[in-house]
Simulated scan of single mutants.
Amino acid sequence: MGTSQHQKAQSRAAIITAASRLFRERGVEAVSVAQIMDAAGMTHGGFPRHFANKQELVNEALASAADEQRVSNGTSSGDFETFANAYLTRQHRDHPETGCVFAALGGEISRAPAETRHVLSERIQRQVEAFGDDPDMQAAALGRWSTLIGAMVLARLVEPEDLSDQIIAAARKFVGLPD
């Protein structure tokens, strides 16, 4: 790959990383292309060299966020306990910009175009398959994962903080994690 192609690939990756972070922090609709490009250290005018439109970037950024979480939290290996221990924490609650794309944007993405929902549906299917190929095992993992996502959404929206902490603690207990 030539230097210009390498630089273009690096720039594209920086845009995806910035978009992924900003979308999870503020929501897809609340973030402009100009804000994303600024966060990536580039000018708005360079955007068309990398993406046809914002929707293409949304799809790639959300896929990247979902893939990043699978690797960073151990879910690619199917280790649910490791995943849940990392997921049900104050750190995750307080930093949606680096956390689960489903908990951060699930409500918004449920109203997104079909192609965006498809991108995340594929990631959900991969995750379910990573938890094992036994249908009962997959159903249990999917139910527990749904509990984690729902708990994180609730923990982020309630006040006061002690109620948020109670939600996280209750979810940890419900899925069988130690205190």
Rank of each mutant, 00 (worst) to 15 (best):
Q166W: 04
R117A: 00
K173D: 12
T147C: 09
R24Q: 13
A9G: 14
I168W: 02
A140G: 10
D67L: 01
E161N: 04
T98D: 04
V101S: 11
A65V: 07
E115H: 03
S32K: 02
E122K: 12
A151V: 12
A52Y: 10
A130Y: 09
L105H: 04
E97D: 06
S164V: 10
L148S: 04
A18E: 14
F174Q: 11
E56N: 03
A34F: 02
T3I: 08
L120P: 14
F47D: 11
G99C: 10
D165E: 07
P178R: 12
A155K: 13
G74V: 14
Y87A: 09
A61L: 08
E115W: 02
A104Q: 07
R156G: 08
Q69C: 05
V153C: 02
A9F: 07
V153H: 04
L88G: 10
F102L: 07
T147Q: 05
R49N: 11
V31S: 06
I15R: 01
S64N: 13
T3P: 07
R49E: 01
R21T: 10
L157S: 06
L177W: 14
A86W: 03
P178H: 15
G78L: 05
G143W: 01
G45K: 03
N59D: 02
D134Y: 06
T43Y: 00
S164M: 09
I167V: 15
L177K: 10
I109Q: 03
Q138W: 09
R93A: 09
R172P: 09
E29S: 14
A103P: 05
G143I: 00
D67H: 05
S76F: 15
V31N: 08
G150H: 00
V101R: 02
E97T: 05
A170C: 04
D67R: 13
I109T: 15
S121G: 12
A18H: 13
R26N: 14
D162P: 00
K54D: 04
S32F: 08
G150C: 07
H92F: 07
S164N: 13
R117Q: 14
F47H: 11
M1Q: 12
W145V: 02
H6G: 15
L62D: 05
T89K: 11
A155C: 08
N53T: 00
N59C: 11
A139E: 13
V158Y: 11
E159A: 09
G150N: 11
M137A: 13
A130R: 02
A39P: 01
R117C: 04
G46R: 11
E56T: 11
V158W: 04
R21N: 10
R144N: 14
